[in-house]
Structures are given as structure tokens and as C-alpha cells.
């Protein structure tokens, strides 16, 4: 299927990509340290765990569901990892346990949404508190700081002779897989169908609950991986690890052009939005703007981007209407 050049150029993916280019050029010209490899590695590493949370969240929101418990799942998995290490478990086993814990959390969300039939916003609001509560129950208030060197190296070093930090590698591996699933498989089409209209998808023979359940399980597993990265990056397993990351992740998904009503949005857009947020935060950080003001800028960017697309749609609709009217007038003039 070929789309016209004009439609392509005005699609949200390309607008985001253009914004990214403008931002990167502007930042490189105005901030001396921006274009350096060190700043690149540092900025990318800071977002490595949030970036992972974005991937399954985008799929869920496209399927008209949401998972706001992702940050709590990441926190809980980090705590499980820390406790397994403290109990003397070898690192591979500890990581496996952490991933298993996250997968189980995702499965619990999935069961409550699909089999019990509860709205996912409420379910994951509940499990957001539940899983975070479990972090504190398991660990008390004190973080575990005895993290093996190999894991902290993974969270703080770059791949030798490059400026690519190790901890972004899982994202770089998973992002294409998620894009392939969404845009190149039948299950991906079904995910869009569910988000576009659950009833129509059901009549078309899509097994809704199976796909939904699968998405929640994947969300749990990927969140667990993000939790492991948080532990590696901060060199500690803390009960408040990854706290509040869900809002950042949701912001990126919406900024990437995914509709809150489901059924719309593409992986490349989401990835561009991620790059935009990383670049913006990095630029502001170099300009000595505090972390809070950075969040405000991202929030403002979200609202402004929505305003822009909304206005664009209205203008487009108005122009189309005018053209159609002109056409109708011309045709009626012909005898």
C-alpha cells in the first residue's frame, strides 16, 4: 500500500521526526556539550528504564486498555532481584526470579481485566498501590545496596569503544520486535481492531481476551526488565525504585500520537517521541534547568502537541468541506 507524499509528510510520525531534527540541531548549536558522546551516553542511560515501559504501554493503549501499575511492577521486580541477591542467589537466577515476579504481576492484571471483566484503569490503579505496598512490606524502608559489580557495570558503562550505554541495549533489541508485532503480524492488526471497536473485532472473530491477557503479561515482563535496569543504573534495590515512572511513560505514548481512545498510533511515532523527550531533557539539563522544570516542559509539550494536531485536523476538515462545497456548486452549474 502506497501513501501519497503529502499524506506522509503531514503524518504525525514525520512531524515528530522533523521536531527531533530541529531540536537536535538547535541544541547542538546553542549548547556546547550537547553533541558530545559523553552527554549522549548520559542522557540515553537516564531514560533507559522508562523507554522500556513505553513499548508495552503503547500496545495496551492502542488496544484501548491501560496499565498504570508498570512502575510499581518495575519497583517490585527490583526488590525481588535485590532480595534474591541478598539471600546469596547467583545473578542469573536472581534476574530470572525478578522477571518471573513481573510476569506474574502482569498476569494478575490480565486475569482481573479479561476474566473478571473489570476496567483496566481501576484494576491497575489498585495494583499500582498493591505492588508498591508489597515493595515496602518485603523490604521495609531500607534499600539493598549490595549489588554485584557486573550488574552495576551494565547500568553505568558504555559498550567498549562506543558511546552506547549497555542499559539501552534491551530497548534497542525489543523496540524493533514490538514494531514488527504491531505492524507486520496478524496479531498486531487484531490489536488495532480491538482498540478501534471491541464489539466489531469480536464479531470479526478476534479472540479479544486472549490478546488482551497476552498484552498485560508482556507489560509485566517488560516492566520487570525495566526494574532490573533501574537497580543496575542506581546501584541499589529500593522500595521506591522507578516511583512515578508511569506518568512519564504514558506521556511519551500520547506524545507519540497514540489515541487515548485506542485503535490509532504507530511504533515509529512513539520512538520519535521518546527521542524528542530524551533530547529535550538533555538540552534543558545542560542549560542548568532543574529536573522539575524539565518535567514541566515535557508536560507542556504534550498539551501543545495535542493542540497542534487538533487544530490541524480542524483546519483540514474545514478545507475539505470548502472544496467539496465548491465542487458541488460547479457541478450544479453544469446544465
Amino acid at each position: 500500500m502506497r501513501t501519497s507524499l503529502r499524506a506522509r509528510l503531514t503524518s504525525w510520525d514525520y512531524i515528530l521526526a522533523a521536531l527531533v531534527v530541529v531540536l537536535l540541531v538547535a541544541a547542538s548549536l546553542t549548547q556546547p556539550g550537547f553533541a558530545g558522546g559523553f552527554n549522549f551516553a548520559n542522557s540515553v542511560s537516564q531514560m533507559s528504564d522508562k523507554a522500556l515501559l513505553v513499548l508495552p504501554l503503547a500496545l495496551l493503549i492502542i488496544a484501548r486498555e491501560i496499565d498504570i501499575s508498570v512502575a510499581s511492577v518495575a519497583g517490585l521486580s527490583g526488590v525481588v532481584l535485590g532480595m534474591a541477591l541478598e539471600a546469596g542467589g547467583p545473578l542469573p537466577l536472581a534476574i530470572t526470579l525478578a522477571l518471573l515476579a513481573g510476569t506474574l504481576c502482569g498476569a494478575l492484571n490480565g486475569v482481573l481485566v479479561t476474566f473478571v471483566g473489570l476496567p483496566s484503569l481501576v484494576v491497575t490503579l489498585g495494583t499500582l498501590a498493591l505492588f508498591r505496598g508489597l515493595c515496602y512490606v518485603l523490604l521495609g524502608g531500607t534499600p539493598i545496596t549490595d549489588i554485584p559489580l557486573s550488574l552495576t557495570t551494565f547500568g553505568n558503562e558504555t559498550i567498549p569503544r562506543t558511546y552506547v550505554p549497555w542499559d539501552i541495549v534491551p530497548f534497542l533489541v525489543l523496540a524493533p520486535l514490538f514494531a514488527l508485532y504491531l505492524h507486520r503480524t496478524a496479531a498486531g492488526r487484531r490489536t488495532y481492531a480491538i482498540g478501534g471497536g471491541p464489539d466489531i473485532a469480536r464479531y470479526a472473530g478476534v479472540r479479544l481476551n486472549r490478546i488482551r491477557f497476552g498484552l498485560f503479561v508482556v507489560s509485566g515482563a517488560v516492566a520487570a526488565l525495566a526494574g532490573v535496569i533501574t537497580v543496575a543504573r542506581t546501584s541499589q534495590a529500593a522500595p521506591d525504585g522507578a516511583l512515578g515512572f508511569e506518568l512519564d511513560a504514558i506521556t511519551v505514548v500520547f506524545l507519540g500520537g497514540v489515541s487515548v481512545l485506542g485503535g490509532k498510533g504507530r511504533m515509529p511515532g512513539v520512538c520519535w517521541a521518546l527521542v524528542l523527550v530524551v533530547g529535550l531533557r538533555s538540552m534543558l539539563q545542560l542549560g542548568n534547568v532543574s529536573g522539575y522544570a524539565q518535567s514541566a516542559a515535557v508536560g507542556a509539550l504534550l498539551i501543545l502537541s495535542l493542540l497542534a494536531t487538533n487544530t490541524a485536523h480542524r483546519v483540514h476538515a474545514a478545507l475539505t468541506r470548502r472544496r467539496l462545497r465548491a465542487l458541488a456548486v460547479r457541478e450544479s452549474a453544469v446544465p
Binding site: 487515548v260 522544570a293 498539551i303 495535542l306
Partner: peptide
């Protein structure tokens, strides 16, 4: 502007917290 409340208040939240 017919924006969804969830996104609007999410944006307002981050701006106001900051």
C-alpha cells in the same frame, strides 16, 4: 479543544508539580 481529560490533566499535573 475537545482533548481527552486523562491526557489534559496528566499534562497539567506535570506542569503544576514543577
Amino acid at each position: 479543544l475537545a482533548l481527552p481529560p486523562f491526557i489534559v490533566t496528566l499534562g497539567v499535573l506535570s506542569v503544576l508539580t514543577a
